[in-house]
Design a binder for these strands. Structure first.
Lengths: 333, 333
DNA sequence: CTGTTAGCGCGTTCAC
DNA sequence: GTGAACGCGCTAACAG
């Protein structure tokens, strides 16, 4: 049942049907009624695809991220969703599974047109960045920056340092860190933050205090990884009283391990997971801080503005954990 | 940059370009090379929308659910995503916010075509059911059943009973239940399950043991609701040692309240949240049980099959918590 | 093997 | 106010 059927049924031309669909004022009341009735009787629903094609407007954002079930990503999506609801757009989720995320993203791009793209938690290679610039829809970055792109980032090292300082302040001395089984620049920064906090308090931060899982999955940022690492800690480091996880995903896995071994949190073992922005959050405490949500909203909004009118300056927003003060620095695109 | 540009650039017709795009064998190696090079040089990406229109295949599923950030929904989405990845489809998320979900769903449907629709956690009115049947794409239900639709459901009362029995078995006697601030059939069943478990153990289950939040949000199934109710319990029911939440969302909010009051879990207060399928999960323990994931996968798969070849029997799958045995009953559509 | 052409369903000038 | 005709970018016959 297409627009033609409706037109026939109402005894008008398709353009007239189109007009009532798009709430044009140039339709007389009687014909509008007739058309609306025809639509109802035929249970007609316009074809979103055809409409997109005709007016070159896709009314949908794609969000590319690794595993949308991580707490942080989840909150981020909430924020994005809020904006999308305001502007009546759809949400296309592209989670770039475990293995080669770049390839997944590229394949997704090949799939075609959306209004805009939000790239979260993925470091852009120069090559991929060029592809994105060439794409017909603009992109906004979250968690990484790249010249020429709008982005939202935060101070990874400082965030990690704050988290560990929090544990220290609570009286812990034997603090270990669960790292990812895969080396990434992101992780290096978080480790650096951990070390700074430990050093500042005069505590040991030898390599033996860094434990990573052995399972390589989701680029090393997986629950399995965290689970695995926590088991190691429980088996080999009985003195440890607190653990800082280099990601919230790890913390979820670590919690699972603690459960299995009947270790309570935080009394038996204090646990802090880095959730990318507000670090001093205990996993299991509550839904994550709203920072992530705000970032999601802001990034989506920026994307929308870029789609509407071509802004020619890419802005890098640097978010300072944990209170979400924003320090913007513009760069020429 | 369209397919025409590529054709020009390579000195061929658009159909030839189309052929290499769709990996047709009917292209000579030399021309294929030329076309591929043109594609690369022009950074051409086919327009997904146009392609969908032409071949009447949308290659995307929409999932309609209330708040996709709840643990259960989240896991469900994971499962759906797995299947989608297998069949190379996209995921369109339609979260039907807090207020009038029916209207949100209807508006989403109006937006147009997707290959299939997964409706989760929403009770279908007859009216809406008819609209769905009339839609061009099939729908599969999760959490509710309706004549003529494939569905995945489970025994709400039994699930709740199991959860409470679990608490009882751990020695708790003063067990309260956090309910939703809004009355729903779903909730009634869960309350019934709670009561059955209490009665079976000879424990009191008076109305004073049922506490609901006062904030009406997300149809009553919100974190705020759970938070609110738990505060009430802490303030007014000091004897209480364990709480059963009528949804995992409530449990998340309740945990937050416990945190604020420095009550540990589960030593200070045992907490179980109903997560729709495997109920004996402690919130904060781990990622939710894989049941939800499996259901998501299975439902999406069924949807896919229904899209491919017209199956004319609607099947109601009844899932028995918590081990996910499935008992199917077919009904004529 | 390759080019031509007719749609896919709808929006949008244009005349009438 | 309303209708006819063209175009959006691509696929799928059909010729050649």
């Amino acid at each position: 049942v297409t627009i033609y059927d409706v037109a026939d049924h109402a005894g008008v031309a398709i353009s007239t049907v189109s007009r009532v669909l798009n709430e044009s004022p140039d339709v007389s009341e009687p014909t509008r009624k007739r058309v609306e009735q025809a639509i109802a009787e035929l249970k007609y629903h316009p074809n979103r695809t055809a409409r997109s094609l005709a007016q070159q407007e896709y009314r949908s954002f794609a969000v590319a991220l690794p595993s949308f079930t991580a707490p942080f990503q989840n909150e981020l999506l909430k924020g994005v969703r809020s904006l999308l609801r305001e502007i009546d757009h759809d949400l296309l989720v592209c989670d770039l599974g475990s293995t080669n995320q770049m390839e997944s993203l590229r394949r997704f791009l090949d799939r075609g047109a959306v209004s805009g793209l939000l790239v979260c938690g993925i470091e852009l290679t120069d090559e991929l960045a060029e592809e994105l610039s060439g794409a017909r829809s603009p992109a906004v970055l979250v968690g990484h920056s790249h010249p020429g792109f709008d982005s939202w980032t935060w101070d990874e090292a400082q965030g990690a340092q704050d988290a560990v300082a929090h544990l220290i302040q609570e009286g812990h001395k034997e603090i270990m860190m669960i790292t990812s089984s895969v080396d990434t620049p992101l992780q290096s920064e978080r480790i650096a933050g951990y070390q700074r906090a430990m050093n500042a308090a005069g505590l040991s931060e030898t390599d033996q205090r860094l434990v990573s899982g052995t399972i390589d999955y989701h680029s090393g940022y997986s629950e399995e990884d965290g689970y695995d690492a926590m088991i190691q800690i429980l088996d080999n480091h009985s003195a440890c009283t607190a653990v800082f996880c280099c990601s919230d995903v790890h913390a979820v896995g670590a919690l699972k391990a603690l459960r299995e071994r009947n270790v309570s949190v935080p009394d038996g073992m204090a646990l802090v997971g880095y959730d990318d922005v507000k670090t001093s959050r205990f996993i299991g405490l509550s839904s994550v801080d709203q920072s992530a949500q705000k970032i999601g909203y802001a990034a989506a909004k920026r994307l929308h503005e870029r789609i509407k009118g071509p802004l020619d300056m890419a802005v890098e927003h640097h978010v300072i954990a944990p209170s979400l003060q924003v320090r913007s620095s513009s760069k020429s695109s």
